[in-house]
């Protein structure tokens, strides 16, 4: 019965129409799109949801203009260390956080506008051998970093103007933490996934490591994207970039797993598998917002799933001008930011 319940159901005739192209922005000076995100930006008393695009050597801020067009507001040049990712900071305005490095993150910086001296600036937040970073509520950044001997899990609080206010340390697990997610429904809880496939839970207020729970050997390199607590259970949305195909659950890209934090026992709630014809290696990278997941598949297409239904609900085939390279959800609305390697970003209403 369980196997039957967990068998993924795919909609017949995946529809591209459920994604409607709203607008397109093209950075003519960029040729190496690395990441895309959205940020609230206020200028001259007008607060707007802007788009941030990153290539290896610069990060650009785009504001909406009339008729679904976008205008570049500013470009920060970041120097010799390449940008690896944009780190969204929830509930902030006029702050963009980026991670820079070569193979791993070596530096975290803030990009901002200073009204004091009417300048766009950048400031250093942290350096080190950083494995994972996440922006969490109340303008905080949590990160895991390693020295030869030990791992550190730190929180940095930022002021409204982007200054680092104070720091806090969380008790590190033995294994390297590769991803974090805040727990919706429990104010001070944070979870992380580790290099040996465990889920760890912290108390953000006290820094305590509360529990370590195993995800299962069938899903190596699981990454947590989202977590929420309901009815005494901890539900975690995991992605499985390297999961193997199995008869019972197909080729799962994302899973919702229910953990009982008291006993560390778990059960799979829903599998979201690759659409038909996309077997084998799965996806390059993806993003989760609420119950929606999006990922770039190795075929160059973008797939969108409803995680609660376990269904792939939309498929964007590779664009004739080039394969998709990035898939991100905007912070508001049901808007998908789909990026191509040449720096073109398409905004789709979902």
């Amino acid at each position: 019965d369980v196997a039957e319940q967990l068998t993924p159901v795919l909609l017949d005739g995946l529809r591209e129409e459920s994604l409607q192209l709203v607008s397109k922005l093209k950075d003519s000076s960029s040729s190496c799109a690395v990441d895309v995100s959205t940020v609230w930006w206020e200028a001259a008393g007008c607060r707007e949801l802007c788009v941030v695009t990153a290539c290896e050597s610069s990060v650009s801020l785009w504001k909406p203009l009339a008729s679904d067009h976008w205008g570049k507001v500013y470009t920060w040049q970041v120097g010799e260390i390449p940008v690896i990712q944009i780190v969204p900071l929830p509930d902030t305005c006029n702050l963009v956080c980026i991670a820079l490095g070569d193979l791993e993150i070596g530096e975290i910086r803030l990009l901002l506008y200073s009204s004091e001296n009417d300048l766009f600036k950048q400031s250093l937040v942290k350096t080190g051998n950083i494995k994972a970073v996440l922006g969490i509520k109340d303008r905080r950044l949590v990160s895991s970093s390693r020295t030869v001997q030990e791992q550190q899990v730190d929180i940095v609080s930022l002021s409204e103007t982007g200054r680092c206010k104070d720091g806090q340390t969380l008790m590190p697990p033995e294994e390297t933490v590769l991803a974090f997610a805040e727990v919706e429904g429990v104010r001070d809880a944070l979870v992380g996934t580790t290099a040996v496939n465990s889920i760890v839970i912290w108390n953000l207020k006290t820094g305590q490591l509360l529990k370590k729970m195993h995800v299962g050997y069938s899903y190596p390199a699981s990454i947590c994207h989202r977590a929420y607590s309901d009815s005494g259970l901890l539900f975690v949305v995991l992605s499985h970039p390297h999961a193997k195909e199995s008869e019972s659950c197909g080729n799962p890209a994302f899973r919702v797993v229910a953990f009982n934090p008291k006993t560390a026992r778990s059960t799979g709630v829903m599998f979201s598998s690759l659409p038909p014809g996309h077997a084998g290696r799965q996806y390059l990278e993806g993003d989760v917002k609420d119950a929606s997941a999006a990922a770039v598949l190795t075929s160059g297409a973008i797939a969108v799933w409803d995680l609660l239904l376990g269904q792939c609900t939309a498929l964007l085939p590779p664009d004739p001008e080039g394969s998709w390279a990035l898939a991100r959800w905007a912070t508001t609305n049901a808007c998908l930011l789909a990026g191509q390697q040449d720096g073109t970003v398409c905004l789709y209403q979902y």
Binding site: T206, Q208, L209, L210, K211, G232, L233, N260, R265, T267
Partner: peptide, 23 residues
């Protein structure tokens, strides 16, 4: 999910684990 699969469930799991865990 039933209690038999996952063991006894507590709505206050976060507070209880925080009280049990080393400071």
């Amino acid at each position: 999910c039933s209690e038999s699969d996952l063991g006894p469930i507590s709505l206050n799991w976060f507070e209880e684990l925080s009280a049990e865990a080393p400071p």
